[in-house]
Amino acid sequence: MSRRIVASPTSWLIWGAVAFFLINLAGVIASVVVNSFGERWFDTWLPSGWTTQWYATAWTEFGLLNVMVVTLEVAVLVVGISVLVGVPASYVLARRSFPGRRLVYLLFLLPILMPPITYGIPLATVLYKYGFAGHLTGVVLANLVPSIPFVILTMTPFIEQIDPAIERAARMCGAKTWQIFARILAPLLVPGILAASILVLVRTVGMFELTFLTAGPDSQTLVVALYYSMSAAGIRAQQSVDAMAVLYTASMLVLLVIALRFVNPTQLVARVKEDPD
């Protein structure tokens, strides 16, 4: 493929803007990473020495092991439940037309279209009222609200890719509905389910507002613990907050790299435009 070597001025402008964004982004990230490994860093280009002690401090001071376990528990539960509930619903919405389909679709879209705080506050109030909030159950329930619609949206293009005649063929071969799901659809949907799971995982680990509103002291996920440690600045060394932030980002990055192996980002949301109005 041949390309022009001399780019037009607009090209330069655009790539320049990208470069500017990336350089500053690198600066933002690097400053945190450097700080988390630095000893003392005042008015100089780099810290005066290097150390890993902040990671040890962060690990013990913030009880990171516990936080990590909670984060994992929440994430796995949310992913599992939202896939179990979302995939069948997504199948029906992608394949069938029935009275009220648009209304149902809108209902599933609304939680994604609303800022989490707007429904998070009343949701947390209700969860506290019934005694769910303040521990793991509440956090999981709250995180299901955006996750189920997200699974539905992610799965729709995957389901639409499957020729409906394949299900009819299975039926003509004598397969019952559950057999079609177990033997034909489930294997074909594995890539989609993996994609949806990892994306929900990333979202849940990164979801601040809902977890913040419903978590108790023992059910904080990593983001929320981070927020608390940072807003209580002054008590803790800033470097150990940075160390924790680096840990968080590193784990998210791993998840994202895995996710990108399964999902082509350019195909991700090809279907959001379907029915939102």
Binding site: I29, V202, G206, V223, L226, D242, L256, P265
Partner: peptide, 25 residues
Amino acid sequence: LVVPITLGTVLTAEGLLNYLGPAGW
């Protein structure tokens, strides 16, 4: 270009404070 999604608000905030702060790079 997708990396910032993983940053999370707190690292972004920390980074901005460090990087753009009065003594930042």
